[in-house]
Amino acid sequence: MVLQIDNVTKKFGKFTAVDQLSLKIPEGEIFGFLGANGAGKTTTFRMILGLIDQTEGKIRWNDEVIDYSKTDYIGYLPEERGLYPKMKVKEQMVYLGRLRGMDKKKVIKELNYWLERFKIEGYLEKKVEELSKGNQQKIQFISSVINQPKLLILDEPFSGLDPVNVELLKDAVIELKNKGTTIVFSSHQMSTVEELCEHLCIMQNGRPIVHGALTDIKRGFGKKNLLIHADFNLDFLSEIPGVLKAKEVTEGVRLQIEDESVSQTILTAIQDKGFVRKFDLLEPSLNDIFIEKVGESYV
């Protein structure tokens, strides 16, 4: 099933939250949405889910409009968490599962699987308010996948989690993808998007400013990074033509250069000055691309 967004615009009065957005997201793929707060990501998710109507354009899933009849096949983790704090985990999941057409036995089977998967088996009869923030987030995630959705939308799923729990959730997302679930998610964690996504869209002021395969986006960016660690002062490298930025890091100095050919000029300039411990030519990171396209003030 393909999720297709064609020339979608959403206006709230005179304010345009999403402006002429067109995307095609294939079945079984993890697709990343990036952008500063207010870029239009959450509004796009809510339009996909049919929670709000678009002003213009069409959204289709398998060539059909997403409506209430299809909610049994969709999972959604909103950025604003919405669990019932006074309810126990088990009764909450049974309630949510029944709303999606599941019988109690199947809900309990899925719930037990995910509780074990997230190493929180003992929380079945606990109230949500008794759990830590991280474990509440795990339960919220479980609520979005309890029905084995074919389309899963995750709005900032990793925010507020420690590194161990981020890895647990990432592994779960990859597992779902490998089982055929189409996953669309937003995140401010560039390294996570870079690790999980083949395709992505960077939005600014409601418009897509970068869109496509991650490999193509990096290739099209052109600029490279060069990491050098030496036992002599490297400050003079910032004056070499083609060096755009120089930043001291724990490993030495990190240079942004116009293209790969500049690295040869730099290598010639340093080869007789002392011992060079590291000289690595690196692809641009997604963080580099995001900062340049969206602006340093947002990061």
Score class of each variant (00 low, 15 high):
Asn135Trp: 13
Lys86Phe: 15
Leu96Trp: 08
Ile108Tyr: 04
Arg98Phe: 00
Lys106Tyr: 13
Val89Asn: 00
Val128Gly: 05
Glu116Val: 01
Lys90Met: 11
Met93Tyr: 01
Ser132Trp: 08
Lys105Gln: 14
Met102Asn: 08
Val107Pro: 04
Leu115Gln: 02
Leu131Asn: 07
Gly82His: 12
Gly134Val: 03
Arg98Thr: 07
Leu115Gly: 03
Pro85Phe: 01
Ile108Met: 11
Arg81Pro: 00
Pro78Asn: 13
Leu115Arg: 01
Lys126Val: 04
Glu125Thr: 08
Leu124Cys: 02
Met87Cys: 05
Phe118Tyr: 09
Met102Gly: 08
Leu83Phe: 13
Val94Ile: 15
Ile120Asp: 05
Arg100Thr: 08
Leu96Thr: 00
Ser132Val: 11
Lys90Trp: 09
Val107Gln: 03
Tyr113Leu: 12
Ile120Val: 15
Glu130Tyr: 04
Leu124Pro: 04
Gly82Asn: 15
Val89Ser: 00
Tyr113Gly: 03
Lys86Pro: 02
Gly134Lys: 08
Lys90Pro: 00
Arg117Glu: 14
Lys109Asn: 11
Glu116Thr: 14
Glu91Gln: 15
Gln136His: 11
Leu111Lys: 01
Val89Thr: 13
Leu99Gln: 08
Met93Glu: 05
Lys90Ser: 07
Glu79Gly: 13
Gln92Trp: 05
Lys133His: 13
Gly122His: 09
Gln92Ser: 12
Leu83Gln: 12
Tyr95Glu: 06
Glu121Asn: 12
Met87His: 11
Glu80Trp: 00
Leu96Tyr: 13
